[in-house]
Design a protein around this nucleic acid. Structure first.
Lengths: 260, 260
DNA sequence: TGGATTGACTTTGTCCGACAAAGTCACCTA
DNA sequence: TAGGTGACTTTGTCGGACAAAGTCAATCCA
């Protein structure tokens, strides 16, 4: 075993060539010299530029692809791209599951971020977003009338996403996603097991939308947090323990409608 | 050009073999069948198990490595591991920079999450964490006395990290990191340019620590938010515009002391 | 003439084999 | 017994190879 730091010289760190390739490309993207959507070049070109073997280039590419900084187009060519929110979010969600976080931990964060979303949406909401919220509300009512718990919980997820989007704060939109991805699936169970659940949900949504339309900060804050506490209560009434780790569900796919 | 969906049959989607390899391994880790720390096996073993070429296995491995689900040990062998918080956080931070988010967006989220951290820390803080906060406070005072803006801002970053850790909420710890990584570097500039900055910071930290020790929710909330608003004000007084995109800084490395 | 077909060319996905560097481990000797 | 030695293992890199699939332009037939 060679002991690091035992001698006069520092250990020479040779990073593998594929890492250097990956870092070089990533630096181009992050620095803005390579803009999202622009082609990165073919593998052969990269081989020429870096002076390494194609296998090595491909290893570097693979790492970057996973990181989301480059993507294969439909023609399989390489393009620079912005890391997608949902990609990062779902990765974080899986990390959270692995760390066996509890519903209570998720709830606290969701509460803070959803209320912040509502607050900021009061200031920034547009007529178009209000229309989309109304449309979402109709969908929720339909689903509730039909007793379709799956559709209703999906609509609820979309509702919160829309409010966050209406806040105009992209950091918020990103930050709330990982927790919400783990959080909202439980809604379905609650809707099915707690009779008054759907009704209270729709009422709360209604009040939030009205508050946003009226630019009423207090009401928006109030009803959003009521909505969330309802939810936690529903979770408990469905017989679950707040301090139990979120289950290991392999949720790779995202709910539809969260593509941006 | 073959038109997708033009015929009677759906287009057959063949995922590349390296993706299948990556997904298979990732599933093992996420499902818990392969526990963090356990060796994944050598490349040769994986070649046997999957029945593909070593190059293909390596491409799959590369992708997973970037995702953080497996890691090379010091002996270069493969081990399953939990995706590290900081890895994901720094990736998110870079994504935020690429999306050219503004200081204002970052600030709103940081405010919500830091205050939530303080609130929850009131309930969960331990004597050990209080000691570490006191130690941090001494470090801050030293740095301020020495007029060392870099050390002071680093201590401030560590302070907020400690408070989040004291909250006992891992989701919170994770959620606040991406924004804070982009946020706290500006502290140094503020400390240098705004004369009363360091003094106000230390006063605020003092009050937060005292409030946590006394389990005083109101005071903790109050001083943490004061601290943040001070900060935003410092940013403005340093002549920066809140709505200007955060610069493109290639910040791969994390500040020290955030390793967990 | 115009649209479909064909075929050359490019690019990616996969595979094979090879070798050097570096780590591991058992063995052997002073 | 401590430490050096050498065989073995494993990874990092390279070269070449071929099939599948996309691109593009020339060609052919109605």
């Amino acid at each position: 075993m060679v002991e690091a730091g035992s001698g006069r010289f520092e250990r020479i760190q040779v990073a593998p060539a594929y890492q250097l390739v990956a870092e070089a490309i990533e630096r181009e993207v992050v620095s803005g010299r390579l803009l999202p959507g622009e082609p990165v070049g073919t593998e052969a070109e990269l081989v020429r530029q870096f002076g390494v073997n194609r296998s090595t280039v491909r290893e570097g590419i693979r790492a970057l692809e996973e990181g989301g900084f480059i993507q294969r187009g439909p023609d399989r060519r390489l393009y620079a791209c912005l890391p997608r929110y949902n990609r990062l979010s779902s990765r974080m969600s899986r990390a959270l599951i692995l760390h066996e976080v509890t519903f209570r931990e998720l709830f606290s964060v969701a509460l803070a971020l959803e209320v912040a979303s509502a607050e900021q949406a009061v200031e920034h909401i547009t007529d178009e977003m209000l229309d989309r919220l109304e449309e979402n509300q109709r969908e929720s009512e339909d689903a509730a009338a039909a007793g379709d718990a799956a559709r209703l919980s999906e609509a609820d997820g979309a509702f919160h996403h829309l409010v966050a989007k209406a806040s105009g704060n992209r950091v918020l939109l990103l930050s709330r996603e990982p927790a919400s991805l783990l959080f909202f699936p439980t809604t379905e169970m609650i809707c099915r097991r707690v009779p008054e659940g759907p009704g209270r949900m729709i009422t709360a949504h209604r009040h939030v939308i009205d508050a946003l339309r009226a630019r009423d900060l207090e009401q928006a804050r109030l009803w959003m947090s009521r909505h969330l506490y309802d939810w936690r209560r529903g979770f408990e009434r469905a017989g679950r323990d707040l301090d139990e780790p979120v289950e290991r569900i392999y949720a790779r796919s995202l709910p539809p409608g969260l593509s941006d």
